[in-house]
Design a protein around this nucleic acid. Structure first.
Lengths: 165, 165
DNA sequence: TCAGAATGTTAGGTACGCCTAACTTTTATC
DNA sequence: GATAAAAGTTAGGCGTACCTAACATTCTGA
């Protein structure tokens, strides 16, 4: 199930991990990639060769791993997708952090560019629109928890807007 | 990447397709499954054996394919996930129908039960909350199209709420 | 009814993505 | 600078999921 960029979900994860390691510890070592992705060291070598052949990383056996500019671009895209999805799950849907992280991790490979951009825009809209915002999301949480609309709360809410928040 | 139910993305798609065919044409035939999933007839046989072994379908060579009750339950869950995601993409994010369908198809395997339920709740909230609704979503579309907030529009919007919509 | 068409199955092949185990290279330490 | 530990690679294996081509069964209509 290759994404828009032709990389499998697995390879996207390798690329994302390499970017993370480059940024957080200067270099990406095969051992650390293996640890982060919960795979064996041997599996990493194959993936690195594959990414190298496709022009996403610079790779020579027993040497450092670095992202090419093409790889960097894509890795950042994947990271952004991950971050946006997580933000939506966390701040809008109010999913717990652990589930949000896991779900974002799986969904990031399924979302296309157009939808990603819309989602980013939506998150932005929700938190800047005076009709929505934190308070509105908080009401959503209550709505969810109580299993439906409470007319009384709803009336109060509308009233408070009409009389000037 | 097996989902919460232990089925691969591929097998989830087979199950979903079988449900669709059962509902729309009484019986699910291997040929139709193949056509809908864009795979060859030979590939379907293997998948059917697999689903049968796992107890999701009743399958005998050269015979009808039917969902077991366990299979029906799971197939409906997958369908609901698909439908909810599509609805969100279509009605909230206002993604075009083709992209929405394709993206929902990929995302449905990545979303967990908790997140799915929250999403359903959120869609519901958006369209029933007096502070949000169709009109609010329409403003989102404008916001997206124009690349940001227009203070003038925003003022008018708030005014219209305060003076009673 | 029976032959050809349509449908379904089997067998063998490919690619991916992981594993383990053995081996090589690099590194760190004495 | 020799050597042991750590890191990296290679080779062979497994399961999934697809493919094609050949073969088997079922359906259909003259």
């Amino acid at each position: 199930m290759p994404a828009e960029n032709g990389l499998s979900e697995s390879l996207e994860n390798y690329l994302e991990t390499i970017l993370y390691l480059e940024q957080s510890q200067k270099v990406a070592r095969a051992k650390d990639i293996a640890d982060r992705l919960n795979v064996q060291r041997g599996s990493v070598t194959g993936a690195l060769k594959n990414l190298s052949e496709k022009g996403y990383i610079n790779y020579e056996p027993y040497s450092f791993i670095t992202l090419t500019s093409k790889g960097m671009k894509l890795a950042k895209e994947i990271s952004y997708r991950h971050a946006a999805l997580k933000e939506f799950l966390l701040k809008v849907l109010r999913i717990d952090p652990v589930t949000a992280e896991e779900t974002a991790c799986r969904m990031e490979h399924a979302i296309d560019k157009k939808t990603f951009e819309r989602l980013v825009c939506f998150i932005d809209y929700v938190f800047t629109c005076p009709r929505a915002g934190e308070e509105w999301i908080q009401s959503f949480a209550n709505y969810c928890a109580s299993g439906g609309r409470k007319q009384a709360e709803c009336d109060l809410c509308i009233q408070s807007i009409q009389t000037g928040k």
